[in-house]
């Protein structure tokens, strides 16, 4: 009994050490962002600020606000469109299989694993020639297309779990393809929409490669703006850390409140799940 007690104590101790390790960067970023310039120095990194100073947050916001706005204008429509198209695709692939539908699905899925560098040159040329280079609609289009495979995957696997018998009853009543989708499938799809919504929003918000290639200031999303902020040597560390937290906050808040669904997206993205 006492051995069990000791074991449990060690278990919790190890868990707490790891938890502290994972939180350590957050702690440092947070306390640094709250320091005035005079207190930011190499030797005192771990010390708490003597007084809370929000000026670095103000400076960071000034530099990042156009990027934050662009990222919102980008992530919200991209997420909505990708979810709708994904739901339709998933429905077709799970409930109305046709010869070759599985092979098609596999070819579709491969699209989410390619290194995007291998499509970047043509993408840039095409975006430029159709007038969507350096524009938010252009980036929305790009994120929708390259987000399609995972959205289709999540909805398809979700719909596979809905028994075919449910559709059968409606079919006997003479309900058609879209009628069944609207009346039976869609009302059951809320969890899948939450999963893909969170996943896609996080992906688009955090994305860097497309954003850096296809936009120039002032149309750059927040991650490019943050990179530019920290890339300039004259910017103080407290401003950089405030910027980093600010850029991470939207996805972090979503994670804190809907973490369960985020993890489901995470697991679904590894194909088996």
């Amino acid at each position: 009994m006492s051995l069990r007690r000791v074991n449990r104590a060690v278990l919790y101790l190890v868990l707490c050490i790891f938890a502290a390790g994972y939180l350590m960067p957050v702690y440092v970023a947070l306390i640094t962002s709250l320091k005035p310039n005079s207190e930011v120095d190499l030797a005192r990194m771990w010390q708490l600020p003597t007084r809370i100073d929000l000026s670095s947050w103000g400076q960071a916001f000034e530099r990042l606000s156009p990027g934050l706005a662009t990222s919102l204008e980008l992530a919200i429509p991209a997420t909505i469109i990708v979810a709708i198209v994904g739901a339709c695709n998933g429905y077709a692939l799970s409930k109305w299989r046709f010869p070759g539908s599985r092979t098609l699905f596999q070819w579709l899925l491969f699209g989410m694993f390619i290194p995007y560098q291998s499509v970047l040159i043509p993408l840039l040329k095409v975006m430029d020639s159709i007038g969507l280079y350096n524009s938010v609609p252009g980036l929305v289009l790009v994120h929708v297309i390259y987000g399609l495979p995972i959205a289709t995957l999540i909805f398809r696997n979700f719909y596979v779990g809905i028994p075919d018998d449910l559709l059968e009853a409606g079919r006997i009543d003479g309900t058609g393809y879209w009628g069944l989708f609207r009346s039976i499938i869609l009302p059951l799809s809320v969890p899948a929409f939450v999963v893909i919504g969170i996943w896609e929003f996080t992906q688009v918000w955090n994305e860097f490669l497309f954003a850096a290639t296809l936009t120039t200031p002032p149309h750059q999303p927040v991650m490019v703006a943050l990179q530019n902020l920290s890339g300039s040597q004259i910017v103080q560390w407290n401003v950089q850390m405030a910027g980093a937290i600010m850029a991470a906050l939207p996805t972090l808040i979503v994670y804190i409140f809907l973490g369960k669904y985020f993890v489901r997206g995470l697991l679904a993205g590894s194909v088996k799940g």
Partner: peptide
């Protein structure tokens, strides 16, 4: 706590 860094951008991780 062990999963939250996954919700953060690689750019943010890199900066910190």
């Amino acid at each position: 706590l062990f999963i939250f860094p996954m919700a953060i951008a690689f750019i943010v991780t890199g900066v910190v």
